[in-house]
Amino acid sequence: MVVVDAAGGGGRQDEESRRLGFALTVPAQMLVLFIAAFPLLMQAYISLTDWSPLDGIGWWRAWELWNGFANYSDLATDNRFWGALGRTIIVMAICVPAEFLLGFGLAILFTGNFVGRRFFYSVLLMPMMVVPAVAGYMFFMLFQSGGPVNDILSAIIGSPVQIAWLSDPDLALFAVIASDIWQWTPLMFLILLAGLLGVPEDQLKAATLLGASWWQRFVTIVLPRMKTIIVIALAIRVIENFKVFDTFYIMTGGGPGVATETISIFIYKVTTQELVWGYVAAIGLTILIVLSVVAGVAIKYMSAQRREA
């Protein structure tokens, strides 16, 4: 939870501490300002022009290519943009619930002691520590038509399977989703297990003595206790999944065609291949504004919920 701890850990507010407190926060403030204030103004300015780095004029002279809000109206009718956005949402709608359910299921199995628990725990966490670009390459290799995935399928079916996963528009999306689920289910598992272990043992024991079934205990004690943690875990994955780039781009480059082109890959390609930076600036700024509004509403909603609770 984002807690703004206003009072601080408890200090007398004298002149010395006020000055030191200010001095200590200066570097961080400067970095934020450096990456936020000026760049955002620059981005807003460029987004109102047709400027491209190929034009041969400095960005400050971009006003010569002023086109008002044309970039923004282009965006509204850009089918490729809306397609990418839709795909990003489809990916999210499959990945996040799948990761949540798999992670939660595994976490439940990890409550209580059993032989090898620590070892299994460490190994199961590994995928989330693998560099995403490398994970992308792993799955690129796995899904080659002569690769292990087809090999395993062949062994199961009994006849040779030669599916070209990454060059088939329908299957490529499935393959990149598989890589995301592989890499980020451990994160759900990690967070949800930490939450599960925080549920007070004695309450569960008391409920058991009173004859509550496993399911009853889960629904009436565990789930309500886990509510915040579940929201945090889901929020983290929704945010990160929306940005997804590395694994997808390395596996398919957004292709075949635009079959796996998510919003990040779309922006990357427009930035580096079509070089219409004025347009890219408009896309970026739109996303920033929409996300800020969504986040603001979400935080407000959650703090209202907390007050009621």
Binding site: V3, G8, L24, A36, I46, I263, L288
Partner: peptide
């Protein structure tokens, strides 16, 4: 300790939220 930099938590959380590609042009 001193309650300085009250705006930082929100600013830094936002920094985490945004996709880097949306601000990379500047």
């Amino acid at each position: 300790r001193f309650g300085a930099g009250q705006s930082l938590p929100l600013a830094l959380t936002q920094l985490r939220l945004f996709p880097p590609l949306a601000v990379m042009i500047p």
